[in-house]
Amino acid sequence: MSATPPANRWLRVDAWRGLLRDRPIIPLVGLLVLLVVVIELADPGIVNPEWASVILRASVPLAILAGCQTLTMLTGGIDLSVAAVASMAGFVTATLVNSPGGVIEGIAVALVAAALAGLLNGIGVGVFRVHPLIMTLGMSFVVLGLANVWQLQMVQTGAGVPSSLRTLGTGTFLDVLPYSLVVFVPLMLLILLGLRRTGFGRLLYAIGDNPVAARLSGARAWQVLIALYVISALMAAIAGLLITGLTNTASVSLVDTSLLPAVAAAVIGGTSILGGRGGFGGTIVGALILTVLTALLTVLGLPEPTRQVLFGAIIVVVAAAYTRVTAES
């Protein structure tokens, strides 16, 4: 006899637990919709295509930075150097705007510098087994310091955010779809498919879930980790370029305030900081939730301090909910 599910299965707590455990993205999208409904109720008429466009533009860089955290957290690591690398990338591009190569040269130099930082992170974590927290924290000091040195060197040449980056960060198709999606959508597909369909993606999960088993099955963790941290640094650089364009500012500490929200977005999105569990889909929704939440708290007229307190409280509550459902499986 095939067991037919009872009619009231969605009324049972277990079913919801299972949903949150196996498909965390569904309740997350529910939470996002709820937030949008609340913001519409709080300020009728605010939710329109232009508003959505503003939210998307703000969410894209955050989602990319949170993607760096997601990928590294899957292996049980973390990347605290993304803020320094992202700021550096935007800043370097802005300082090279008047160079012979123009914007292209600036972006190329920024990406190479970012890849180098990522390579060193990967070698430290993968080969020398330095704790990822320490390795990337130390790297963030190095990158920030060198960016400051660069700033002093380049101060005479004059700098400005290239107009192409400004367009990429702030421009929209038909006033709705942000240009930054041109960068984000391919990147998103690459990561989503890469995590599910490629050996590299499965290796990330395997290393995070059980490093010993992964090694015994023939996975060369150091190669995976080096590639991973280079990818993470490149993604951070891309996010930095977008943020530089979005804010029309180039500064060596531009992205610093996004570091902890990026970790928070990954955690809210269901990625475990202990490794082996999570994905990029949840992270994107997590970044959207954080952005809409910030917008909602602004609409409600709550001052910045109250916003921060609620922000922190929500992270704890969501993380606690995940821990509860995953621990009881």
């Binding site: 902890l260 955690v267 900081i273 910045e304 922190g312 409280a313 993380a319 821990t323």
Partner: peptide, 19 residues
Amino acid sequence: TRVPDIVVTLAMSFVWAGV
């Protein structure tokens, strides 16, 4: 909550700074 230390204290860093 049994949430990893790093996540809880990260969240609480927002809370205490807000207060």
